[in-house]
Design a protein around this nucleic acid. Sequence first.
DNA 1: GCCTTTACATACTTATTTGTATGTAAAGGA
DNA 2: TCCTTTACATACAAATAAGTATGTAAAGGC
Lengths: 114, 114
Amino acid sequence: MTNFTYQGRLYYNPIELAMAFIGGTWKMPILLALRKGPVRYGDLRKTIPHINDKMLYSQLRDLEEKGMIQRKVYQTKPPRVDYMLTDLGKKSIKLIDKINDFGEYLMEVEGISH
Amino acid sequence: MTNFTYQGRLYYNPIELAMAFIGGTWKMPILLALRKGPVRYGDLRKTIPHINDKMLYSQLRDLEEKGMIQRKVYQTKPPRVDYMLTDLGKKSIKLIDKINDFGEYLMEVEGISH
DNA sequence: GCCTTTACATACTTATTTGTATGTAAAGGA
DNA sequence: TCCTTTACATACAAATAAGTATGTAAAGGC
């Protein structure tokens, strides 16, 4: 039995936990968008195709809660907020690159053009 | 724009496609259960904790449709069906191991015991 | 004759995830 | 004075994924 709980949810194996940190439609695109350094909220919106405010802000909150990213608030008007990877977040990038590679391989194999 | 379609669904990037092949609660556990060679339906049920018939058979169908696994039916009574990885399925194992490693690392970092 | 085994199938419900629409504060510019 | 910008926040609806309960065929054993 590898059952365990994290943040009030039950997990059956390490894979489920990993996916809680990087899974879903938006977490990996967000993490990749931060790989080069801090990016502000509005720029994330612009660089991640198709994302909407609700998804962006709720996923940012979730990633922050899990220690994958950090917020930095500047006390200006209008406000400015930067997001950046933590060490844990940086660690996920290598894995996300591998997942992306597999996706690109699948596109090749399946004859999907882009 | 990297938009494309596969099996009637729209994808925005390679990551989404990769997750269609290995994502969800059950695909990775199923693929790992097949890593050592062919396994029959009933044994998959027994070795994958908490899975139920509906999830097992529907995910097996999906994985087969995507070319990740192969079915082999023996014409006996009661029936016997073996499932095994295709070359594509084998290719996914390395990646799944990496995802699992990341999950185990998270368990360590988060102080989760098992 | 009835029970058990095996590998599914189907109908239906529940839970989770994602998306849409709209609102807010406060300063600066026209 | 009114409009714009920025970074959210909330209510609600739609879509997707997962789970529950039940059924089926056909042979062999008791």
